[in-house]
């Protein structure tokens, strides 16, 4: 079969093999990157050893949300609810009403889209202590829109009572899990599963619920980011340093409630371009949350957002898609350089 023509690629890229859509779940770890296996599953097991109220529930995605680690450690505290997400979250609400701390897992699309009313009414409105932990957040699957949760944060942000966490890496996930156990109330956590990159340990980072943290200072550009985009922003900052562009990175893992004070202070520094980078549609995510905050506070830095376009995303290999939609490290560098000239 004749290979498809490779257009408009530089020679380095043209030499790479053609990429294909991986399985539904693609690794987001770069080649040679340090990783940890199933950090969520192991962290949950650690918490559950000390806290008998924790139960694990899933809708036929235990293996694919790293909940199988919990299942192996506590088989009698693991509840397979079947491929029935509405039931999953309704039952999680009932479990929580009886004093338990259910961790309910599925893919982000199924929680945020299919089961929205169940989460809204039985968990958020009733203020139940349910931890919703969802794999494949944003664009972390090349499988197509059925599995790409480009709008999960927008949907969850609109729900009163919901705390929303978008962790960056394995180091952070390990700290988020005990923190959300300690926090009483509904939580939506974006999950990275499988072999998850280790990044933030190099920055002496500790997670605090509701806190944004400056990982790196820079006077020309400030990235504000969450989730995997913080990893990308840090890589971009290093790359841009080589081009003598000084870039800071403010990591905002708690999407709601937003750390307004830290963000406003960081954005008040004069002459610094603020770029919010998010693995999410540009509608209703961190970019618009920060923009709204700045407008309401009368803080007006030069401001740009990097996020997924308002369209149904393509199927394909994740690196291809991240380049195409502007959220790869290279794409971040290119966009920032364009805005600075």
């Amino acid at each position: 079969m004749k290979p498809a023509p490779v257009a408009k690629l530089d020679t380095a890229k043209a030499a790479k093999p053609r990429l294909t859509t991986s399985a539904m779940i693609a690794s987001i770890a770069g080649e040679g990157q340090r990783t940890k296996p199933a950090p969520f599953g192991h962290a949950l097991v650690n918490c559950a050893r000390a806290d008998a109220s924790i139960v694990g529930m899933t809708a036929d995605l235990g293996k694919y949300t790293d909940l199988h680690i919990f299942q192996q450690a506590f088989p009698d505290r693991y509840y397979q609810m079947g491929m029935a997400e509405q039931l999953l979250f309704g039952a999680a609400s009932g479990f929580a009403a009886e004093g338990f701390t259910p961790f309910a897992t599925t893919y982000a699309v199924f929680a945020s889209r299919r089961a929205y009313d169940f989460i809204h009414q039985t968990i958020a409105e009733e203020d139940r202590n349910v931890k919703i932990v969802c794999a494949l957040p944003g664009l972390t699957s090349g499988y197509g829109p059925s599995h790409q949760a480009a709008e999960d944060l927008a949907l969850m942000r609109a729900m009163p009572n919901m705390t929303i966490i978008d962790p960056c890496d394995a180091h952070e996930i390990e700290q988020v899990v005990p923190a959300i156990v300690a926090h009483k109330g509904p939580v939506y956590m974006r999950l990275l599963r499988g072999h998850v990159p280790m990044v933030l340990d190099e920055y002496g980072y500790t997670f605090e619920l509701g806190k944004a943290k400056m990982l790196r200072n820079g006077y020309e550009v400030l990235f504000i980011s969450s989730g995997i985009m913080t990893m990308r922003a840090l890589e971009a900052a290093k790359a841009l340093e080589a081009d003598r562009v000084d870039v800071g990175v403010l990591h905002v893992p708690t999407i709601k409630p937003l750390d307004a004070a830290t963000i406003l202070e960081a954005c008040s520094r004069p002459g610094r371009l603020v770029v919010v980078a998010e693995n999410h549609t540009v509608i209703g995510g961190l970019g618009e949350a920060v923009a709204g905050l700045l407008m309401r506070a009368g803080v007006h830095p030069a401001f740009r957002t990097i996020g997924l376009p308002d369209e149904f995303l393509a199927a394909g290999a994740l690196p291809t898609l991240h380049d195409r939609y502007g959220i790869s490290t290279d794409a971040l560098c290119t966009q920032v350089k364009g805005w600075l000239t």
Binding site: A91, G94, F95, A96, A97, G99, Q121, T122
Partner: peptide
């Protein structure tokens, strides 16, 4: 014991409560 209004929620909540009661 629950917030109704949106129909079809109760039995799912009941399943969770029954599992929880058995667990206790």
């Amino acid at each position: 014991e629950m917030s109704g209004g949106s129909l079809g929620l109760g039995l799912s909540i009941a399943v969770g409560k029954c599992l929880g009661l058995k667990r206790k």
